[in-house]
Structure formats: C-alpha cells, structure tokens
Write a protein that binds this DNA or RNA. Sequence first.
DNA 1: GCGCACCTGACTAAGAAGGTCAGGAAAGTC
DNA 2: GACTTTCCTGACCTTCTTAGTCAGGTGCGC
Lengths: 151, 151
Amino acid sequence: MRVSAKADYAVRAAAELAAAEEGPVKGERLADAQDIPLQFLEHILLELKHAGIVRARRGAKGGYWLAKPADEITIADVVRAVEGPIAHVQSSPPESIEYRGHAEHLQEVWIAVRANLRAVLEHVTLADLVSDHLPAIVENLVSQPDAWAAR
Amino acid sequence: MRVSAKADYAVRAAAELAAAEEGPVKGERLADAQDIPLQFLEHILLELKHAGIVRARRGAKGGYWLAKPADEITIADVVRAVEGPIAHVQSSPPESIEYRGHAEHLQEVWIAVRANLRAVLEHVTLADLVSDHLPAIVENLVSQPDAWAAR
DNA sequence: GCGCACCTGACTAAGAAGGTCAGGAAAGTC
DNA sequence: GACTTTCCTGACCTTCTTAGTCAGGTGCGC
C-alpha cells in the first residue's frame, strides 16, 4: 500500500513538463528541479514515452514534452505507466480473486478500495496539479483535519 | 499500491476468527479454511497477537481468538498490524514530505489518496465482513459497474 | 510427564526497489 | 563531415522485501 519512489518521481517530472511553456525540456533540468538522480530519471522518462505520455527529441535543443494537453493526462495514467495496475492484491486484480469461507466478502472490500483510489487518481490531471486549484473531491478530502493525522 | 499476501492472509484469518462461535480456534483449522501455509500463518498470528488483535492459548484445547469484539476491529487495524502504516510515499508518511517546484500540490493529492483509503478500511469491521451486509460506503462504491472494470 | 499447540529465531530463494555504468544513436551546429 | 549535445538502451549492482521453510523451545491440560 505504498507509492514507490519511481511513481513519485514520474509524477513530479510530469508536473514540471506540464508547467513548462513551449519547447522541449532537458532531462537534466527536470532532474535538477525535482532533485531526482538524472540517470534514474531517464529510465523513467523512457517508460513514460513508451506509454505515450511524453515525447522526446535528441540532440542540441532536444528534450522532453507532454504528448497530450496537460488536462488530458491524469495522475493515474502516469502512475500506471511506471508501476502497472493500481491496487493489486497478491499480484492479481481484485475482481479475479475468489475468496472462500468467511472471507467471501473481502473481494468487495478490495474492489471498494480500488474504486476510492481511482476516484482521486483518475480525476486529478497534470493541469490541476500545477494550477492552484485541485478538483473539489481532493479539496474536500484534504480539508478534513483527520486526513493529515498520522496513524 | 498493492496489498501483500501477508495482509490478505491476516484479514482472512481474522475473518475466520470473527465467525467462530466460542472457544479458541487452532492455527491448523484457520490454515485449512483459508488455504494458507500453516507455518507462515503462525508468524502472522503472532504479529496480530503482539498488536493486541488476537489472543492465544497453547496446548490441547488451545488456539486463537479475537482480543476484542469483532465489531471493534477494523480491516485497517489488521492490515496495519502486519504491514505498518497504510499509504506511505517513498517510505515516509505523506504529511511529512515537502515538494518543490511545480510538484508542490502533490502532497495534497497523496493526502487525499490516503484519506480515501482510510474511508474504506477504517469503516469496515470484521463483524461487517462476516455478515451479509457491508457498510453503505462500500456497497455504494461496489455498485458502480465501473468499479469492477480492470484498468 | 506427555502430547498438543502455540512461540520464536534463523535461514533461504526469488524478486523488486533504487540506482549506477557504459556505450550507442539521432539531431543540431560549425 | 566532424563534433557536441541529448536522448536511448541494456547490463549490472546492492539492498530490502516477500513469502515462505526449518528446527527447536515453551507453556497448558490431562
């Protein structure tokens, strides 16, 4: 139930790209801006490219840019590109697991968990992230003081 | 963003205990009922015991039982007992991470993710799980057909 | 005191996480 | 066309986690 460094890095780099005005941004600049090891970031950007989220050009004046408008890319897209499906149980998607005995309804619980994860991740776009206004669903969740308490 | 085998096993074993009428249940019976390797399960039960979720007695007529009524133990309690804090980012709690540059609002997104995870896991008790009636929040999420779609 | 069932630490094999290294290949510049 | 720049790619590495197994120890009840 944790977010890997890789996924965190990927979203942060994508946010920098979303905020960049025009023109390709060098990997090095992204690495500097977000304090990410350059060579590791390059691997991540390659995965984002294969997933069709960013595009790139080599050589002088080269760099990376978003393949689509920032308001058409969600955080879920970015996370899935580097981590694979969100919310697997024992490496299988929850809808394909069969529970026995008194654990029968556990499947529905995991399905609900996944749905609630998606409710956030699929509704925040990169454009939202770099603006000063996150979607209402996030604002609501964040405004509960309870949400900030460790546990 | 995945649920480990251990956490899944722990919840399933706890569900069996919640459903058991009176008296200690042997580890072997739990292992059989939920198809969990016995020796692995014993380690898990030990952790649940240390967390104060189950109690145990050795010897003939020994076994495990819940330390509290089933409606006072949530799935979150069980998962945390074996996996530690739910929803960490890069091994740190989201409220303690500082983001720079254009990723500034990412913290709020992770906080919202965690809040939504908790909204499910902290509201489903073991009693709910073994009954035929999950809490309304879960029923609502599960009833959206979208929730069952792979992605 | 004997068997039953939990308790506990040590161990292990495989995989993932989080990188680093070394070189290749395209794009632009002089 | 040589040279620089920047992305592209595979190989490698170290540490940690996962998902167990093994071997015994310890307390409880009869």
